[in-house]
Amino acid sequence: MEVNLHRLRRSGFLLPDDIIFDVLTRLPAKVLCRFKCVCKGWRALLSDQAFIAAHKSVAAPLIAGVFRLPRGNNFELRVMDMDGIILRVFKNMPTPRFLAPTRLDLICVYNVPGDFATIVDPAAGRVLLIGGHNPGVDTSTLPHSYYSLGRAAPSGVYKVLRVDVAFDGRVQLCEIATIDDDCGSEPAWRERHVPSAITHWYGEEEATVNGILYFMSCVDDDTPQGCYSMLDEERRLDEDG
């Protein structure tokens, strides 16, 4: 017996799941977050990795920026679309200062002196606070920390590199943490040896491209000092460069 979809839907049957899926991928992130209230099924679908991936492939890129409010020392993170329309504002971020330069789906904002950083997933609306040194690390000698967010290539895993420096900017400690898929739990820091070629770190002249973190030396001149692979967690020496 053939099923007549036409009549079924009229008697209260929904559109097929694949059509609902298709339609929803065409909607902006803000509308989708609102639609999580429609029913449990939609909430599960909208939080599903496959859906998020499909939505990203259709959606236009977004821009993120940290803004200082006119009064007080308050900063907020704004996520905008390409037309400059603000899609989402993250307000309660205690004095974040730096937005780690990335072109990724996650955003990393950290404060001064860098005792914590915030990883934001703008599409899912999730915020993950990371910080806290591993037990046994003497933080009194590490007044500043700088964070870099990158995506290991080709595994696609998000990793955060934290460089802890002494008062004079000298690098004391390098740590790496892996962000899990749904930004759900605070990651553990893994200590990595400080590559001998890295002496000073000021955190501002850097960029992560395709899993490699490039940074500049701020000590003598502005030539790129080296690069760091997020994947193998080893510094790639660029001795001649």
């Binding site: 209260g12 049957f13 929904l14 559109l15 609902i20 803000k30 509308v31 977050c33 609102r34 639609f35 999580k36 209230c37 429609v38 029913c39 449990k40 099924g41 939609w42 909430r43 989402r88 504002v89 609306g125």
Partner: peptide
């Protein structure tokens, strides 16, 4: 949306309130 797509609201009042607070910005 529920009306247009003929979807039953299967949340409890409390659950809905929780999501609304979590996603207040989207409203």
């Amino acid at each position: 949306i529920r009306e247009v797509f003929n979807i039953k609201n299967d949340y409890t009042k409390e659950e809905l309130e929780e999501i609304r607070q979590e996603l207040a910005w989207a409203f």
